[in-house]
Design a protein around this nucleic acid. Structure first.
Length: 324
DNA sequence: TCCCAGGGAGGAT
DNA sequence: ATCCTCCATGGG
């Protein structure tokens, strides 16, 4: 088979907005490339890569995900591969997660006023912890556009191209070994600046087994967080991004500039709280939902509050989600 | 030109 | 613990 398509519908629990989710800048993996009808990415099956294009069918509240698959040169699509792709997408977009239960649990909470604005936005759970780790490191002090561009450049320079049957050429994200032995100057040439040595050092620790994803998964949130922060270039925010989007730890709540500001404004009446305090506050308040709560706070803030940071404690636009 | 971006390291207090 | 400056790059 040279091409196949199918629809995911029954397994999706609750609403899903593919566009919001894809454009939300989560460091699970680089944003998929835009296609005529949606987004596409190369997905690694055992034995080869498949070009997978996804597009939303149905509505946000009765969502269907249309999937189109094109094999790499020399590969032939087998029926069993469709199941693998389906599982991959179900996991990546956490489609089996009952989002409505999160909504109803916090309907009376402050984020209850935010939920209708970004309904169907889902956490992403990257299928490659290493890719997520590097993306999280790249994302520090950079825009989503920048770190996505950098991740693509790194892929283009450090991996062998795959050619799909429709003619497109695709570069997978490189292995830990490749980046561990990468020339630091070539990496810097991708535009990542001082982050180059962070990428090499983190990759080396993965190769050496000092950073073991399975061990991090087993040790629980707090311990995993402090172990990650031993690595140069990984601070509280990057560690939380990786734990949430890379390892799927729901209690991780990355506190960046925006979350810091939003939490201070929304929960403490504008009084500035420390970043670590904000992190602990979100975990205390939302428990295993802290990461999801953070995602909704972040997106509401960016989408409806504005794109400029105002250092004043009294922003020009009042932040009142319940009015909306 | 200047400012800022889903921060972090190294330093001083 | 909490503040400060510097770090490379690119887009507005």
């Amino acid at each position: 088979m040279q091409r196949a398509n199918f629809t995911i519908k029954d397994g999706i629990k609750g609403p899903f907005n593919l566009y919001f989710t894809m454009k939300s800048g989560q460091t699970a993996e680089p944003e998929w490339q835009t296609a005529a009808s949606g987004f596409w990415e190369g997905i690694n099956l055992d034995g080869g890569f498949v070009k997978v294009t996804v597009s939303q069918r149905g509505s946000v509240d009765e969502p269907e995900l249309f999937v189109d698959a094109i094999p790499g040169r020399g590969l032939s699509l087998q029926p069993g591969m469709m199941d693998v792709i389906r599982d991959h997408l179900m996991s990546l977009f956490t489609l089996g997660y009952d989002l409505e239960s999160f909504y109803s649990k916090f309907r009376g909470d402050i984020i209850g006023g935010i939920i209708p604005k970004v309904r169907g936005l889902r956490l992403m759970h990257g299928r490659s912890p290493f890719k997520s780790l590097i993306c999280s490191i790249l994302s520090q002090h950079a825009t989503v556009l920048q770190w996505n561009l950098w991740a693509r450049r790194i892929s283009n320079l450090f991996s062998q191209p795959v050619k799909f049957d429709d003619g497109t050429v695709y570069h997978p994200f490189p292995d830990p070994r490749t980046l561990a032995s990468a020339d630091i100057r070539v990496l810097e040439g991708c535009g990542i600046g001082y982050r180059a040595r962070y990428v090499v050092e983190a990759s080396s620790k993965v190769v050496a087994g000092e950073l073991s994803f399975s061990r991090l998964r087993d040790m629980g949130y707090l311990e995993a967080r402090s172990e990650l922060m031993e690595v140069r270039g990984i601070g509280p925010k990057v560690a939380d991004c990786f734990l949430l989007y890379g390892l799927g730890m729901g209690e991780a709540a990355p506190v960046d500039l925006w979350i810091h500001r939003i939490v201070s404004e929304l929960y403490f009446n504008g009084a500035k709280v420390g970043k670590e305090y904000a992190n602990r506050f979100l975990r205390d308040r939302y428990g295993s939902y802290a990461g999801l709560a953070q995602l909704y706070l972040y997106h509401y803030g960016r989408k409806f509050w504005g794109s400029r940071y105002e250092s004043s404690s009294s922003p020009s636009k009042p932040f009142k989600p319940k009015d909306g």
